[in-house]
Simulated assay, not measured.
Amino acid sequence: MAKPEDALVKTTSVDQLPKIKKRKESRLNYIKRNYILYLFLAPAVVSVFIFNYIPMYGVLIAFQNFSVMRGIWGSDWVGLAHFTSFLTSPNFFQIFLNTIKLSSYELIIGFPVPVLLALMLNQVRRAGIKKNIQLVIYAPYFISTVVIAGMLFMFLSPAGPINSLLGLFMDRPISFMSEPDYFRTIFIASGIWQGAGFASIVYVAALSNTDPQLHDAATIDGASLLQRIWHIDIQVLKPVMAVLFILAIGGIMGVGFEKAYLLQTDRNLPASEIIDTYVYKRGLLAGDWSFGAAVGLFNTIIGLILLVTANQVVKRLKGETLY
């Protein structure tokens, strides 16, 4: 004997069928009306699929003793042996902590700088002066990382201008690029100088959409400049800041490999050796492809976990999220 609840469920599901069909038809009609937009989008989708998704099968070598002659499908399967080898290696904690420290300090110190630059640029009313300032602060972003590293070695060398200036107060020069204690400061400070100006473009664009009537009303009500910045400009920037912060958390394991590798010396390795440089040395230079792939996959998984966690935390705080 059928229960009343079963009949109710069947009736409800049958009643919902026309609605589902209408939704499908509306989606098909929308695609037909806007097929040109989908044609414009198609090359990007195909490109991402070819260059980002198809190569993913290559992560299989992280679970193998990969041999170039035998190929991916012919190499011996070893499971999690390479992951275990990396996690139990004597220098694992040092490399892992170096990566976390560099990324965390760069995020904590560097993340607010573009916001402050955007807020200050927003207060410049003369368009000509504003453009000149933007040109100056954006320019370092377009300097090659190799050139940046060369500049740092030149300026911070024992015979460089920085030590020449410090020589007025000290007896002997400081070997900045050889001391592990100075590496993080040099890395983070140069990164902020190079990228903060360009990173502020997003915030400047967001502030340009602020309704000027809000500032006019706040000024009439007697609000000071700092009060208007806090209650108007910062509120406008909050959604953008939330999304960029989540992305920054997701990339916390991806410290800039190029600059870290270029700034490395034999003496500052205790502070400069990070996961990316370790993968390069073991995976490419030493030819241990499987071990390098395993370490890289470990790094990616940690970044994915941080990204999802940050997104969920921001979502619970009722902020703007990625999904």
Rank of each mutant, 00 (worst) to 15 (best):
M1V: 13
K3G: 12
E5P: 01
D6C: 06
K10M: 11
T11A: 12
T11P: 00
S13Q: 12
S13W: 10
L17G: 05
K19P: 02
I20A: 13
K24P: 00
N29T: 07
Y30L: 15
Y38T: 11
L39H: 04
F40S: 00
V46Q: 03
V46I: 14
N52M: 08
Y53S: 08
I54V: 06
I54F: 15
Y57C: 09
V59I: 10
Q64Y: 14
S67Y: 00
V68N: 01
G71H: 10
G74F: 01
W77D: 15
T84R: 08
F86L: 11
S89D: 06
S89V: 08
F92R: 07
F93Q: 08
Q94F: 03
I95A: 09
L97M: 07
N98H: 12
N98F: 09
T99S: 06
T99P: 01
S103D: 01
Y105N: 02
L107I: 13
I109P: 07
G110K: 06
G110T: 14
F111Q: 06
V113N: 01
V113M: 09
P114Y: 01
A118M: 02
L119Q: 12
M120V: 15
L121K: 05
G128W: 12
A139R: 01
I143A: 11
S144P: 06
S144F: 13
V146W: 05
I148Y: 02
M154A: 12
M154Y: 15
P158T: 09
L165R: 02
L165S: 13
L166A: 10
G167E: 07
F169R: 11
F169P: 06
F169G: 08
P173Q: 05
F176G: 01
F176Q: 10
P180W: 11
D181R: 13
I188R: 08
A189V: 05
A189E: 00
S190A: 14
G191T: 09
G191A: 06
W193H: 14
G195A: 15
A196K: 10
S200C: 00
I201W: 08
L207G: 04
S208F: 05
T210A: 04
D211F: 06
Q213E: 11
H215F: 14
D216V: 00
A217E: 06
T219F: 01
G222S: 10
A223P: 04
L225Q: 10
Q227D: 09
D233S: 03
D233K: 01
Q235K: 15
V236P: 00
P239L: 05
A242E: 05
F245G: 08
I246E: 10
G250R: 07
I252W: 10
I252M: 11
M253S: 12
M253H: 04
G254N: 12
V255H: 09
F257N: 03
Q264E: 03
L269Y: 06
L269A: 14
P270Y: 13
I275C: 04
V279E: 09
K281Q: 13
G283S: 12
L284H: 11
G287V: 05
W289A: 08
S290V: 11
F291Q: 02
G292T: 04
A294C: 04
T300Q: 09
T300G: 10
T300P: 03
G303R: 02
G303H: 02
L304T: 14
L306G: 01
N311D: 15
V314T: 03
L317K: 13
T321K: 11
L322I: 15
